[in-house]
């Protein structure tokens, strides 16, 4: 599990293309493509080094007021995926 105070930062060399309902990121180093749904794309855009994991969870919680999601799980899932795929740099 990622530390709540960690400030994730996307690697500079990962290419981002927006879709209306998500995004596509292309890791130029590994030549791998990741198609993100809208939530994951939103989280990716918050990985600029200025938001902590806790901030991101709060941001997503704000957007999903319905409370239907387990926000912490969603954010952790997305950020852990980015980290495991080597898409994040040093924060």
């Amino acid at each position: 599990m990622l530390d709540a105070d960690l400030k994730p930062v996307a690697r500079d060399d990962v290419q981002y293309s927006a879709l209306d309902d998500g995004a596509v990121i292309y890791d130029t180093a590994s030549e791998r493509v990741h198609v993100l749904n809208s939530t994951a794309a939103y989280i990716w855009n918050l990985c600029d080094g200025s938001f902590t994991v806790k901030d991101i969870e709060s941001e997503i919680e704000e957007l999903a007021r319905s409370g239907a999601w387990d926000i912490e799980d969603k954010v952790q899932e997305a950020l852990t995926y980015f980290q495991k795929q080597g898409l994040l740099g040093a924060g």
Partner: peptide, 11 residues
């Protein structure tokens, strides 16, 4: 279908 879904298919 969504752009997200179509991108996956085209890929």
């Amino acid at each position: 279908i969504s752009q997200y879904e179509m991108f996956r298919q085209l890929l």
